[in-house]
Design a protein around this nucleic acid. Structure first.
Lengths: 191, 191
DNA sequence: ACTCTAGGAGAACGATGGTTCTCCGCGCAA
DNA sequence: TTGCGCGGAGAACCATCGTTCTCCTAGAGT
C-alpha cells in the first residue's frame, strides 16, 4: 500500500514545482505541498529534511528541465546561425505556456537572494550554464569574440524573459529574435 | 514633541525602501519597519492603513526616483544618440551602488505578481513608463521604427538589470551599452 | 491645577508557517 | 498469531506576522 519512494519523490517535486513557480517559494506552505502531492508530512520530511532542501531540489530539477528543453530546440537546427536563433524560438515556446511566470531562478533570487546563499548560488550557476551554452553556439558560428556575443545574446534573452513575465505577452521573444538578427549581422563574418 | 506628519511619513518610507528592497517585501515585517523608522506601530497604521498600502507607496516612490535619476543622466547629453546611450551609463551608475539588488518592480512582481493585481499593475506601469521614455529618445534620434528600437533597447536594459543583480557585477551595463551601439549602428540612419 | 487628547511602548489576538509528535492501522517475519 | 515497524492523518508546538488594543505619559488649552 505504501507508495514507493521514487513516485512519492516525484509527486512531491511535481507539486512543489507547480506551487513554488506559480506563487513564489515563500508564499507556499509545506501543508499546501502535502495536499497537492498527496504525500503525508511525515514522509515529505523524510524525503526532504527541510523546506530549504525541497526548494533546492525544485531549482535543480527546473535547471535540468530547462537545459534539456533548450537543447531540444537548438539541436533541431543544423546551421550555426540558425542554432543561435533557435534559442529565441525556444523562448517563444516557453512564453506561450499558460503557466509561464518568468524565470524561477530570477524569482527565487528576488525572494531569497540576500538571505539564502544557496539560492543565490543556484541562480548564478543556472545563468552561467546558459552563458556557456550561448558561448559554444557563438563559437560554432565563427564569432571573433564568442564570449562577448554570448553576453549580448544573454541580455536579450533575460530581458525577454522578464518583460514577457510582466507584460503577460509572448511578444518579447520575437523582439529579442529581431534584435539578435541585427546583432548577428553586425558581429558574425559574412558568408 | 510629536514628530510632524511629513517627517514621520518620510522616515517610514525611507525604512520601508531600505528593508523591502534589500530583503523583499514578504520577508520584512511591520515590526522591522517600526524599529528602523522609529515610528510607532499605531502611527504607522494611521499613515498607511495596511502593509499593502505601504508596499504601494514604496513602489510609487521608487518609480518617481528611478525616473528622475534616469532623466538626469539622459538630460546631461544633447546629441540624440548620446542621449540613448546615457541610459546605459545610468544603469552602470545604478549597478555600482553598494545596495543594488535588481529592479524593485521585478522583484516585487516575482513575489506577489500572481496574488496582488495591484503590484502586477504597478510593475507594468513602471515598465511602460520606461518604454515610453525610450520610444521618445528613439524618435528624437530619427529611428524609422522608434517603438521597435525602444523594445530592443528595453530588452538589453532589463537583461542587464537582472544579470547584474544575480552576478553581483556591474559589467552587464557595459555589455548592454556595447550591444546598444551595434543596434543603433544597424538601425539609425547614417549621419 | 485640571482636563483632554495625541502619541509612544509594547502586549494581545488570531492566523499561518515550519517542524515534530501522537495515535492508529496495516502488512510482514517468526 | 504475535509483535514490529513503516506510513498515514492530523494535532501539537513554537515562532512570526499583520493588525488592534491597553495603558500610560506629556504637552495644550482653559
Amino acid at each position: 500500500m505504501a507508495m514507493d519512494t521514487d513516485t512519492a519523490q516525484r509527486q512531491v517535486l511535481d507539486a512543489a514545482d507547480g506551487l513554488f513557480y506559480e506563487r513564489g517559494v515563500q508564499a507556499v506552505g509545506m501543508d499546501a505541498i502535502r495536499t497537492a502531492s498527496g504525500v503525508s508530512l511525515k514522509r515529505l520530511y523524510q524525503l526532504f529534511p527541510s523546506k530549504d532542501a525541497l526548494i533546492e531540489a525544485y531549482l535543480d530539477r527546473r535547471d535540468a528541465l530547462w537545459k534539456s528543453m533548450l537543447a531540444d530546440h537548438v539541436d533541431a537546427a543544423t546551421d550555426p546561425r540558425e542554432r543561435i536563433l533557435a534559442v529565441f524560438d525556444f523562448l517563444d515556446d516557453w512564453f506561450r505556456q499558460r503557466d509561464f511566470r518568468g524565470c524561477a531562478f530570477i524569482n527565487s533570487f528576488g525572494e531569497l537572494g540576500t538571505v539564502s546563499p544557496r539560492v543565490a548560488e543556484l541562480a548564478m550557476q543556472h545563468k552561467e550554464g546558459f552563458r556557456q551554452a550561448l558561448t559554444e553556439l557563438s563559437k560554432a558560428a565563427g564569432a571573433a569574440d564568442p564570449e562577448r556575443l554570448a553576453d549580448h545574446l544573454i541580455l536579450l534573452s533575460e530581458g525577454a524573459i522578464t518583460r514577457s513575465a510582466i507584460s503577460g505577452s509572448p511578444d518579447p521573444a520575437l523582439r529579442a529574435r529581431e534584435a539578435a538578427v541585427l546583432l548577428l549581422d553586425a558581429t558574425l563574418p559574412r558568408d
